[in-house]
Design a protein around this nucleic acid. Structure first.
Lengths: 212, 212
DNA sequence: ATACTATACGAACGGTCGTATTATTAGTTT
DNA sequence: AAACTAATAATACGACCGTTCGTATAGTAT
């Protein structure tokens, strides 16, 4: 069953991929609004109209860019954590991979979603809605990870409350690092806050993942 | 010593004030970049060139807008807290007035600085620098409030660490409220996180300001 | 070879952007 | 009333915006 693919579609797919790869980087630094079709075309040395045809409208380009960022985020943050068994260890791994994702500048402007969400937080429309859904999805993942740790008897905490706090530490470290140019100390500060918070919620006898 | 003021300067001042009053609102919703001179002039029904003459450049308009937002912020958030005596009570008042500032939508797009800081966090320039300075100033105020409470024997905590955590809760509540349209529950969630955190840091015997 | 399709292109549209130049109006001073 | 000053306005500029249109090219099917 050799899957012979139409060469034309393949070519279009490659272009589309190249566009989105560049688009997420621009958007993470300058925002989804500054993501202009002309600028993208110039950077990639393709025609404006050819690029435009791939998406049909500016807003569709923005939505496609968000979906592309989500895929990158899933690989950089979520998958490494899911490779760790459920429980407190996975919750710590999730926190760790998030801070690393921000620190490593997987997106050059820091967390793509922190940036985009603030940009469209107060503006109604499809972009806002997609970002809100992504945010809900992300918080659900944290909450679920906390719940699992609770069911395993490793943790005692209100999942929604603890998820709110952990997520707050992530975002705040990300932003502080952007303001104080690449000061890695803020990540250590966040890591410390997370560790202390999880220690307070951990049940006695649970092995703490940040020790050995 | 009657201070007879030049009527021309007065007129200019009024215009300038009206421009900035509108500018902070636009910027808090659409960002400092979307704050265009033409749009401002149309909304206020004055000429584009006349408005432009007040600031001389786009970037100066943006800087003036940030300074105007800082003044509003000082009145809405800082002053009410400084009216409370130093100590744990003042720290709680600061947290309370911040959450109220966000919830009341003093700026229609939520916290002006959360928005602007994310917009210019990854972009070098004067706007970035002014926002970074404002952020440093704000964190210093929280830290100083914590230090005072420590010196009064009401609190035991690393000021920098606790300031980071409290500020993280503020910002996270603000953003969550924007995403889940005006869901006041997130403010209660943040308030709860803050209260628990301060209870853990409060020294025995200290009256807790949120009780009675 | 022929017909068909998907992708890419160049040129142009009406608008808006920030900015500069030049004129006009309102208010103060002499 | 004349001279001066500060605020506002009118007009124009080149650059870029998102979008549309007609056309050329590359790859597939008949």
């Amino acid at each position: 069953m050799e899957a012979r693919i139409d060469g034309r579609l393949r070519r279009g797919d490659q272009t589309r991929r190249a566009v989105l790869k560049h688009a997420v980087d621009i958007a993470s630094v300058d925002g989804l609004e500054a993501l202009s079709i002309g600028r993208l075309a110039k950077d990639l040395e393709i025609s404006k109209s050819g690029l435009f045809a791939h998406f049909g409208s500016k807003v569709e380009l923005q939505l496609a860019t968000i979906r592309a960022a989500r895929r990158i985020y899933a690989v950089a943050v979520v998958e490494p954590a899911l490779a760790v068994p459920p429980g407190l260890g996975r919750l710590w791994a999730l926190s760790d991979s998030w801070l690393d994702y921000s620190k490593r500048r997987v997106f050059p402007g820091g967390c793509f979603f922190a940036k985009a969400t603030h940009e469209y937080g107060a503006r109604p429309g499809q972009v806002h809605d997609l970002l809100a859904a992504a945010n809900r999805e992300w918080l659900d993942l944290i909450e679920q990870t906390i719940e699992e740790a609770g069911e395993l008897g490793e943790l005692e905490a209100d999942p929604s409350q603890l998820a709110f706090e952990l997520n707050a530490f992530y975002d705040s470290a990300n932003m502080a690092s952007l303001l104080r140019d690449n000061d890695d100390a803020v990540y250590e500060q966040a890591r410390h806050s997370i560790r202390v918070r999880l220690e307070a919620a951990a049940k006695a006898g649970t092995p703490l993942p940040w020790i050995g």
